[in-house]
Nucleic acid binder design. Structure first.
Length: 630
DNA sequence: GTTAGGG
DNA sequence: CCCTAAC
């Protein structure tokens, strides 16, 4: 029979001398229909592979034996010898055969590191389970369920695909499954597990990076050499081959992969499905679904920057897909819930709506961040994926930073060269610039000041990159720090402040009545405490009913958008309400009024803590909004 | 300087 | 509320 590919010599520390049995795939060139068979071996204490005894084999045979072949079909991956060598040469403690077991797509260009990470999942998912109790049944079943689940997802998506004829949001990633397996594996010592993982990651970081770059550099070569050796599988080689196939061939490949026909004619969809099948995961990036100029474009749309492109292909897209998919598989139901609608970038809906809006280019801060991290990437391989490149994709792209290793309690998944690892979480302090002189906002009431600047967003959680950017901005910090210190009103003096103001403006009077109850005294709640006066936030003032009424009145009189007019005429007394404030408040009013009334006019299902706005006003808001829109 | 919109 | 591109 074939040869056993790979060994597990370095896994001793994990197995602690436990003897276990596992299924090892091996390549076979003479079984065309069933290319990868599995040989049952036992991993003895010293890591060597011992052929399974007859009893063990029988035990396996008692279980669903169709699974391995299914798996083979689904996975359809055969590593070339070079790849095996490559994997074996690492100190990643990952058995290369596990790598094959989970399967991966060389042509897709997923760096070997990804497969390594997944390999560890494969190990945890049972193939190399350290638990000796029922080593096969559970594992094989979990495999079975896994595959089944994925097939179900595929089918479901296919249905949707057929209905809509466009790319659907992919189903939630399988992260849960993998994670749970991981948890099982280390359930006695979860913390240790995490620490261990991180240690491993750190230890091997440079090594892996090197290897990754190698793999990245020539994904095609890998694929080609693989194809050359195993021409039988050219069909399931991944994107590069799939790209050139006509739809019909893709459908055939789909059938070969999933064992059934499909009527879907969408090439992209087919490719992705096939890829999903090949890596036995739904985490297939929608690499060829890049949104550009409100249209879906193919992956021919590549960035000139090769590194960039690769990074996006490998990391960001994988992650973005996950992030986008994970939170709600019901996005396609809502149609335009967050992050969902870019799939519906159907010309009629999105572009029209978008055309009406101002087009925004990426913010300067974003650009700075990006360039900064691009530089960083050369050094510490961290990546801050771009949000704006995925235009309408609102999915929260997790950013990256290499931790200094202090906090291990909170972690998040980050992408490193396409793989996903957990690193300690560092909060993103984005404020890079202190506020301008606050007096500029206070207009004529120069005596009025907002309360003391206090230390809030301290530097405690800054990541290295953030720290550096912080240093860059020191000069501007100094600018506001040097601002003359003025009298400060204590929080309890809020009403006094308003008295002062009301002396200036008699319009303050009615305001004062209803504001005293629900806002003034609580206004200081949630005011961030900032450091050294450098970073200060405008005093939070809850909008009072009379203010809201004025705003509504102003909108009805001058129209929404004439904020400065409204401010001038109706808010002259409230110096602290800038035109931007009015605009923001109006926006919020619109939101609440539309969110609330259609379903149940009386309902007033408000968020806990937000002020109760009379439905009367909300109705008026809606009325005005509808009038404005016409 | 204002406004729009994302955060 | 903040930030900032667009106006």
């Amino acid at each position: 029979m074939g040869t056993v590919v790979g060994t597990v010599e370095d896994r001793r520390d994990m197995f602690e001398g436990n003897a276990q049995t596992r299924i090892t795939p091996f390549s076979s060139t003479n079984q065309i229909g069933n290319p990868v068979a599995y040989k049952l071996v036992r991993v003895s204490g010293d890591g060597s592979l011992v052929p399974a005894t007859d009893e063990e084999i029988l035990e396996v045979n008692d279980t669903d034996m169709h699974i391995p072949s299914d798996t083979c079909q689904t996975i359809g991956y055969l590593a070339t010898d070079e790849e095996n060598v490559e994997v074996d040469e690492t100190d990643m403690h990952i058995a290369s055969d596990a790598c094959q077991t989970i399967g991966y797509l060389p042509a897709e260009g997923i760096p070997s590191r990804l497969s390594q990470i997944e390999s560890s999942e494969a190990i945890n998912s049972g193939l190399l389970h350290s638990d000796n109790v029922q080593p096969y049944t559970d594992q094989v079943k979990s495999r079975s369920e896994y595959n089944e689940e994925m097939l179900q997802k595929v089918e479901q998506e296919e249905r949707l695909e057929n209905v809509h004829g466009s790319q659907m949001p992919s189903t939630p990633a399988d992260a849960n499954i993998q994670c749970s397996n991981e948890n099982n594996f280390f359930e006695e010592d979860q913390v240790h597990h995490e620490a261990l993982l991180q240690d491993e990651c750190k230890m091997n970081e440079s090594d892996m990076m090197e290897r990754c770059s190698n793999a990245v550099a020539s994904p095609k070569e890998t694929a080609l050499s693989a194809a050359a050796q195993k021409p039988d599988f050219s069909r399931v080689r991944g994107e590069i081959c799939l790209d050139n196939l006509p739809i019909k061939a893709l459908q055939e490949t789909f059938r070969a992969t999933f064992g059934r026909d499909t009527t879907v004619k969408d090439k992209t969809w087919l490719k992705r499905r096939i890829a999903m099948g090949l890596i036995n995961s739904c985490d297939v990036p929608t690499t060829n679904l890049r949104v550009k100029d409100n249209k879906l474009v193919g992956n021919q749309e590549k960035s000139n920057d090769v590194t960039n492109a690769i990074r996006k292909e490998m990391g960001d897209d994988v992650r973005a897909t996950k992030m986008k998919d994970a939170p709600s598989s019901t996005d396609h139901v809502n149609g335009h819930s967050n992050g969902g609608n870019h799939y519906y970038a159907s010309e009629d809906y999105s572009s029209e709506q978008r055309a009406a809006k101002r087009v925004r280019k990426p913010t300067r801060r974003y650009i700075e961040e990006l360039s900064e991290t691009d530089d960083k990437q050369q050094n510490d391989k961290s990546v801050i994926p771009s949000k704006d490149q995925r235009l309408s994709e609102k999915s929260e792209v997790r950013s990256i930073s290499v931790s200094s290793g202090k906090r291990v309690t909170v972690t998040r998944m980050v992408s490193l060269a396409g793989s996903e690892i957990e690193v300690p979480y560092v909060s993103h302090v984005r404020r890079s610039r202190p506020r301008e002189n606050i007096m500029a906002l206070l207009g004529c009431h120069s005596s009025y000041l907002e309360d003391k600047a206090s230390a809030a967003e301290s530097n405690l959680n800054l990541s290295p990159s953030q720290l550096s950017s912080e240093v860059v901005n020191r000069d501007s910090v100094e600018k506001s720090a040097s601002r003359p210190v003025q009298n400060e009103f204590a929080t309890s003096d809020e009403n006094n402040v308003e008295h002062i103001l009301s002396e200036v403006d008699q319009e303050m009077e009615p305001e004062h009545i209803d504001s005293s109850g629900n806002s003034s005294d609580e206004n200081n709640i949630g005011v961030p405490i900032m450091q050294g006066g450098a970073l200060r936030r405008k005093h939070h003032r809850a909008w009072t009913l009379s203010e809201i009424a004025k705003l509504v009145e102003g909108v009805s009189k001058y129209g929404a958008g004439k904020w400065s007019e409204i401010k001038k005429h109706l808010f002259s007394s409230h110096s602290y309400r800038t035109s931007v404030d009015l605009k923001d408040k109006w926006r919020n009013l619109l939101k609440t009024s539309f969110a609330q009334s259609p379903s149940n006019s009386v309902g007033s299902l408000k968020k806990h803590g937000s002020m109760h706005i009379p439905t009367q006003i909300l109705l008026r808001v809606r009325e005005l909004a509808e009038k404005q829109s016409q």
